Computed example of a mutant assay.
Amino acid sequence: MDKPILDIVIPCYNEETVLPMTAPLFLKKIEELIQEGKISLDSRIVFVNDGSKDKTWEIIQDLSKKDIHFQGVCLSRNRGHQNALLAGMMEAKDKCDITISIDCDGQDDIDAMDKMVDEYLAGAEIVYGVRSRRDTDSFFKRFTAESFYKVMHWMGAETVYNHADYRLVSAKVLKEFSNFKEVNIYLRGMFPLVGFKSTCVYYERKERIAGESHYPLRKMLALAFDGITSLSIKPIRIITGVGIGISFLSFLLIVYALISYFMGSVVPGWSSSLIASCFIGGIQLISLGVIGEYVGKIYLETKQRPRYIISERTDDEECKGD
C-alpha cells in the first residue's frame, strides 16, 4: 500500500500574531509523520486566508517560499470559519488521500494527528478529534457548549459530543461530501450524514498560544443557531405543538367563560385579559421569528450563490516565478 498524502487544512483569520509560532509546529509534525513512514513526502500544510485584514496572507506567502510543504489559498473576502474550512478541504480533495482540519491557534493537540493517521491506516474514513475534558474553558463557556451538544441531540441532529472541527477525513469522503450544495453549512453535523466508517480520538485542549479568540459569544450563538436550523426542523414542530397546546387551553377558557356567563357570575377581569393577550402575542412573535429564520435560509439557498471565492493561491505565484 502506498503511503497516503496528507493535507493539513488550517483556516486563518487575522492570525499574524500566532501564525509564525504555530506554523513551525505543523511543519515539525508533518516531518515526523513522514520520517515514521506513515505519510507521503508530498504531504502539505494548506493555510486558508479567510479575508484577513492584517498581514496573515503575507506571512502565508512567505512560508510557502521558504518550504515546499507550505501552501496557501486566499478567499476574496471574509466568509466565516466554516466556509474557509470547506474551501481548504475542497481544494485538497483531488490532491491528497486524507485531510486533517485544525485551527491555527495551537489549542488542539497536534500530537493527536498520529492517532488519527493510525486509525485511517486501520480502516477508518473519518476520525473525529474529541475533547476529553474542558478544564481550560470558563464555567460559562463549558456550560453553554455542553448544553448546546445536548440540545442538538434532543433536536435529532447527529453530532459527535465535544467535537469541534478537528478531524481527519479521507478523499473518498470529501468527494461524496462535495455533493452537499447547501449554503447554510454546519460541518460538525454534516460529516456524520455522509456515512462511512468513523471513530474518535480523544485529546486535551490547551490554552491559546498567542492572540485573542475570534469566536466571541455572538459568533458562537450564530454558529449554534446555524447548526440547529441546518440539521433539524424540530423547532417548527415545537411551535406546532405549542400552538396546539395553547389552542386547547383557549378552548377550555371559552367553555369556562360561557359557563360563567350563563351562571351569572361574570366578573370583569382586566388583568387576566391583558396577561393572556401579551402571552399569546409573545408566542406568535417568537413563532414567526423561528419560521422566518427557516424561510430566510430557504431564500438564500434558492439564490445558489457561491459559498466562497478564491482570489489567490500560492501555487499561482510559483507558476509566475517559473
Rank of each mutant, 00 (worst) to 15 (best):
D7V: 14
I8N: 00
N14M: 11
E15Q: 15
T17E: 13
V18R: 01
L19D: 04
M21F: 06
T22V: 09
A23V: 02
A23R: 06
L25F: 08
E32L: 03
L41G: 10
S43Q: 12
N49L: 10
G51R: 06
W57V: 04
I60D: 00
Q61M: 13
Q61Y: 07
C74W: 02
R77N: 13
N83G: 05
A84N: 00
A87P: 02
E91L: 13
A92N: 05
D94V: 07
D103K: 07
D103V: 01
G106C: 03
D109R: 03
Y120L: 02
A122F: 11
G129Q: 01
G129M: 04
R133S: 12
S138K: 05
F139Q: 12
E158M: 08
T159D: 04
Y161A: 03
L168P: 03
V173I: 08
L174M: 13
E176M: 05
F177R: 02
N179Q: 10
K181D: 15
N184V: 08
N184Y: 07
N184T: 12
L187S: 04
L193V: 05
R205E: 13
K206Y: 03
E207I: 13
R208Q: 12
G211A: 01
S213H: 05
H214Y: 04
L217Q: 10
L217D: 09
L223P: 06
A224G: 12
T229R: 09
L231D: 01
S232H: 02
I233G: 06
I233Y: 02
P235W: 04
V242W: 11
V242M: 15
I244V: 15
L253R: 14
I254F: 09
P268E: 09
S273A: 15
S277D: 15
C278Y: 14
C278L: 15
F279Y: 15
Q284I: 08
S287A: 15
L288T: 09
L288Y: 11
V290F: 00
E293S: 11
D315K: 06
E317G: 07
E318I: 08
K320D: 11
K320Q: 06
D322A: 12
